[in-house]
């Protein structure tokens, strides 16, 4: 369960605005976090607090394959991203690093910037404490849950190899 204030953005938030390529030459999470979202929301980094929640529209994370994008969002303090839909590479990358993302078009539409929101990852229930509305996110398939439960793709792979040997 996480709780935080919402930072809301529109459709087609691309990886170039999440973390511009000019910062990809220094890929440490702390360094990337300093520049997260700066081309569309210069104040994001100074306003975000640990545990806050990002809400986006359709096709969130489109564009480049840079894993630096979910890494920078997480390192900035965001606890999860809720969107109407995710671009597929961003979706894989978030799962692979064990960063929770939820697909929920209704929540993405109705939650407002600045609302206080809780997310229960076990049930997929999203609650907007400010408006009192609740939403149910699409559940992950069991296979993906396995990756998340192991803490990401590589620990999952390590566990799988250990089992085979």
């Amino acid at each position: 369960m996480v709780q935080g204030k919402v930072f809301k953005y529109g459709d087609n938030v691309d990886t170039d605005v999440i973390i511009p390529a000019r910062y990809l030459n220094a890929p440490s999470p702390a360094e990337l976090a300093k520049h997260c979202m700066e081309d569309i929301d210069a104040d994001f980094v100074s306003n975000v607090k640990a545990g806050d929640i990002m809400v986006g529209g359709a096709n969130f994370g489109c564009g480049s394959s840079r894993e630096h994008a979910p890494i920078s969002i997480r390192a900035a303090g965001i606890s999860c991203v809720i969107a109407a839909s995710f671009a597929r590479i961003f979706y894989r990358n978030a799962i692979n690093i064990g960063f929770p993302i939820l697909e929920c078009p209704e929540a993405a539409e109705k939650i407002n910037a600045g609302d206080e929101v809780t997310v229960d990852f076990d049930t997929g229930v999203i609650t907007d404490l400010t408006t009192g509305e609740t939403f149910k996110a699409t559940a992950f398939p069991a296979f993906i849950n396995g990756i998340i439960e192991n803490g990401g793709l590589l620990p999952y792979l390590k566990a799988k190899q250990a089992k085979e040997n």
């Binding site: 894993e67 690093i97 990401g152 793709l153 590589l154 792979l157």
Partner: peptide
Amino acid sequence: GVGSTDMAAGMI
């Protein structure tokens, strides 16, 4: 296209 963790998993 995939991300870096997928690349690592593929290489392994």
